[in-house]
Design a binder for these strands. Structure first.
Lengths: 140, 140
DNA sequence: CCGTTTGTTGCGAACGATTCTCATGAGTAA
DNA sequence: TTACTCATGAGAATCGTTCGCAACAAACGG
């Protein structure tokens, strides 16, 4: 049911959100994106950014995760379908990962416990080589 | 500095939060916990529940994660140290997992990309056997 | 046991992110 | 072009969480 896409209209706002998201290198929050668009001269509304982002996330064009602060972060996704992320805690650099091992592990563990319809959240955070080199060792 | 615990006082409120959390089977939100305590006749304040939970989470006695709604959920943690969770999307039943495979994978992937100081977020969601039996197949 | 000291509590206000409302504006089809 | 709808945008409304502050009570010394 409802696998068919609803009739969405083509608006410059939707495109602007998509573009701005693609432009952003790491994960960005809706508010950040809205700010950037505004800074870029756009008159787009905050609510529209939220709506656009939600749409992109739903259609798989964007990926969303929650920051530790409880904010929703989005990122333009090149890899369609399921994948995970490796994110630099320092510079925000993000890489998409495939994780066959983890997929299988998740399935197996789920099955062992009698769980079905498994989903999982797997994200890796670390300090990338660049940041490590330029910062040496900076504490928390 | 400040690795040493701050001088915390022993109050019945703190104990009440701890007890209520231990009582709860799955993950609970601060608000839920507060409600239960109130229902139980306690006059504890909401802010205190928040403070108590934050304290428990920090000391490792409780584990916290964010619900898809952006709420902070807490759970009393028996397993000290690092571990993951398998959570039933339907009834909230939660099991603590060890995930050697995943730990190793995370380290390896991080290393391959030149990342250090790896951390990761890994949580599994599914429908447990019980719920599956009693609900058959309920769509989204 | 009593007074002092100072971290805790609890209330309500403040805050911040997200969603909703609704009148207006712009795609789309005829 | 005209009509029909859905999308937009501004601000209000929501909801979870944190803050500020005065009263309180746990730990301590005498």
């Amino acid at each position: 049911m409802s696998t068919t896409a609803q009739p969405k209209r083509n608006t410059w706002q939707r495109e602007a959100v998509r573009a701005a998201l693609a432009e952003a290198r790491g994960f960005v929050s809706a508010q950040q994106l809205h700010q950037r668009l505004r800074d870029g001269g756009s008159t787009i509304g905050l609510a529209t950014v939220y709506r656009g982002l939600a749409g992109l996330a739903e259609s798989g064009e964007a990926d969303s995760l929650q920051s530790p602060d409880g904010e929703n972060l989005f990122r333009s996704c090149s890899t369609q379908g399921h994948h995970h992320h490796l994110i630099c805690r320092s510079c925000g650099e993000t890489r998409e990962l495939e994780a066959r091992v983890v997929e299988e592990w998740a399935q197996r563990v789920g099955a062992e416990h009698g769980f079905t319809d498994m989903e999982h959240v797997v994200d890796l955070f670390g300090i990338c080589a660049n940041c490590r080199a330029s910062r040496g060792a900076a504490g928390a």
